[in-house]
Computed example of a mutant assay.
Amino acid sequence: MCLGIPGKVVSVGEDIHQPALVDVCGVQRAVNIALVCEGEPAELIGQWVLVHVGFAMSLLDEQEAQDTLDALQSMQAVGLELDEMRQHEDGYAVR
């Protein structure tokens, strides 16, 4: 399953054909903004976008972005707990 992850646009090129840098949880990634850029690319700086396979798929408001990040972090925490439970089931590591 593939998920879109919120990121904040920190820099852009001169046009939509140049990738923007998007901060995703502290890591900057080059992202194609052609699908979300309706005006000048510079207008996207500071905006939140939903990133999927290297493309900004949609714009998000900051609250929606934070709610999504919180949900993704919760899912990761639950996944880690389940992995730990599986490893300790009946005293044997289960794979």
Rank of each mutant, 00 (worst) to 15 (best):
R86I: 14
V31T: 06
T68A: 07
V36F: 05
V22E: 02
L82C: 12
L35V: 10
V24L: 05
I16K: 10
Q76D: 14
V27W: 02
E43C: 02
R86K: 15
Q87P: 05
L80H: 13
V51R: 02
A65H: 01
Q87W: 02
V12H: 05
G79V: 01
L21S: 08
R86E: 07
D83A: 08
E38A: 13
R95N: 13
V31Q: 04
Q73V: 10
E40W: 10
N32M: 03
D90V: 07
S11H: 08
E84R: 13
P6L: 00
A30E: 04
Q28K: 15
E14D: 14
Q47D: 10
L59T: 01
V53K: 15
G91N: 02
G4N: 00
V24S: 02
S11K: 10
E64R: 15
Q66V: 04
G7W: 09
V94R: 13
D70V: 11
E84A: 14
Q18S: 08
S58E: 13
L3W: 14
G4H: 02
V51G: 01
L60T: 05
G46E: 06
V31W: 06
A65M: 03
D23Q: 06
A42Y: 07
Y92W: 09
V94P: 00
H88A: 00
M75F: 09
V12Q: 08
Q63H: 15
A56K: 14
V49H: 08
P6K: 04
E43N: 10
P41R: 15
A77L: 03
D61L: 01
V49N: 08
E40N: 10
I16W: 00
A93I: 00
Q76N: 07
D70N: 14
E40H: 08
E14T: 06
I33F: 03
I5T: 09
L80F: 12
N32R: 06
R86P: 00
Q47H: 12
L21W: 08
E62L: 05
M57K: 13
L72V: 05
V22K: 00
E81P: 05
A20E: 05
G26T: 00
A30K: 15
L50D: 00
E62Q: 12
G54Q: 07
I5D: 02
Q18H: 06
